[in-house]
Nucleic acid binder design. Structure first.
Lengths: 104, 104
DNA sequence: TTGACATATCAACAAATGTTGATATAATAG
DNA sequence: CTATTATATCAACATTTGTTGATATGTCAA
């Protein structure tokens, strides 16, 4: 199991937030096939350059993707530990021991 | 593996969105211990009644929690298949075969 | 009944997020 | 150099989301 101590809620919320946008999910769908340069993502996602850049930044800030510059191109890829981070975040729905007492 | 065909991106985005708020994650943290009535969540989450109700609705609309009325209390609990749905959503980061060709 | 309680819903507002078009930066080709 | 290409960043705006306080609804107790 990847889960250690439950990661901080704020961080978790940010992670989920980065994944909560359709455009970003489209980008990721493309990146699942491996590293891609921005120009290629523009085609795949059909977003204006500026918009794409905005969403790539959102994903990057959340640690979900990494980028790498090569000459005049920038390549983006899913970050190595993104999957583990997200797996850990699954814990938010995992049952836990806790009293089942009546309330009020 | 729970994953079948990748669920529709819009749905996935909505699922993640419901999880992208700290208040809602606090609620879920409490619900991990089992069903709870709203009054009890108010304490746990320290949110005004109206605000709590708003977030519970968000979770419910996303299918993450279910509610049950009993007398004058409403009990909320994590929905039975919420975990599976979220597990499936993990697929957004799963590597996939796809060409690794050079771009541009 | 009437009143008190638990909760949902609404309207007004505030804050955060996404979009667009323009411009800046950096790398390369000519 | 200068022009061109790839991409980021910015400012203005639009949209969405969350908050607050007020009010509505349903249930029980007296």
């Amino acid at each position: 199991m990847a889960t250690t101590a439950a990661p901080d809620l704020r961080r978790t919320a940010r992670l989920f937030h980065a994944l909560s946008d359709e455009t970003r999910l489209k980008i990721l769908a493309r990146l699942r096939g491996g590293e891609r340069c921005v120009c290629e993502l523009m085609d795949a996602v059909d977003a204006a350059q500026s918009r794409l850049s905005f969403h790539l930044k959102a994903l990057k800030d959340a640690g979900i993707v990494v980028d790498r510059r090569e000459g005049r191109w920038n390549y983006y890829a899913i970050a190595p530990d993104a999957r583990d981070d997200l797996s850990d975040a699954l814990a938010v729905l995992k049952p836990r021991a806790g009293r089942a007492g009546s309330c009020c």
